[in-house]
């Protein structure tokens, strides 16, 4: 089963994703694909908080900021993976080693498809960043367009699509993970 979760910042996506992954794993092994590459203390504190939140849930952590298509080879097909987040993954791929890769969105989509096809269950978390009254520079615009394309592709290939709003679930497609 593939579950896609998005919504605004601080709406409970990561916590809900833990429940969703646990609900669909059927007792099988659980892996947390951590995509964030820490750049400063703020990132480290955020990662620490997420690690604490996962304590006792039974997830093995795989730190993978790039090339997520390689994850399935590490976990095997029967695993359930929680990937948090598509947002950080695209940022890593697009701005890899300080350069700018405008075609990173296509790579992320291709890697997501490969990963989703390579494991039994996966929960994908992304961020809804598309409702601004602001004109962005070309790089930021490229990032937003690419993330939206990845989100739409993920939504298409997912059995369930969920938006989180202040901790409330809006079901856009399929059935709630149970």
């Amino acid at each position: 089963m593939t579950v896609f979760i998005s919504g605004g910042c601080k709406n409970g996506k990561s916590t809900y994703a833990l429940h969703a992954a646990k609900a669909i794993c059927g007792g099988g092994s659980l892996f947390y694909a951590a995509t964030m590459i820490p750049h400063d203390d703020e990132d480290l504190r955020r990662i620490e908080r997420h690690v604490r939140e996962r304590e006792g849930w039974g997830f093995s952590t795989i730190e993978k900021g790039f090339d997520i298509c390689e994850i399935a080879a590490l976990t095997g097909y029967r695993a359930t993976i929680l990937l948090d987040s598509v947002t950080a993954l695209l940022s890593n791929e697009m701005f890899r080693e300080g350069d700018f890769f405008p075609d990173a969105g296509a790579k992320v989509i291709s890697d997501l498809k490969a990963l989703c096809g390579g494991v039994r269950n996966i929960v994908l978390v992304s961020d809804y960043i598309y409702s601004n009254a602001e004109t962005f520079d070309e790089m930021t615009g490229c990032y937003m367009r690419s993330l939206a394309a990845a989100d739409r592709e993920a939504a298409k290939l997912s059995d369930t699509v969920i938006e989180l709003c202040s901790g409330n679930v809006i079901l856009h497609k399929g059935k709630l993970p149970a």
Partner: peptide, 21 residues
């Protein structure tokens, strides 16, 4: 386009645009 959920824009014209829309 939904342009309503971001931070209130600093630019007065952008604020007026958001409200008028």
């Amino acid at each position: 386009e939904d342009i309503f959920c971001g931070v209130v824009p600093l630019d007065p014209l952008a604020r007026e645009w958001r409200e008028a829309t």
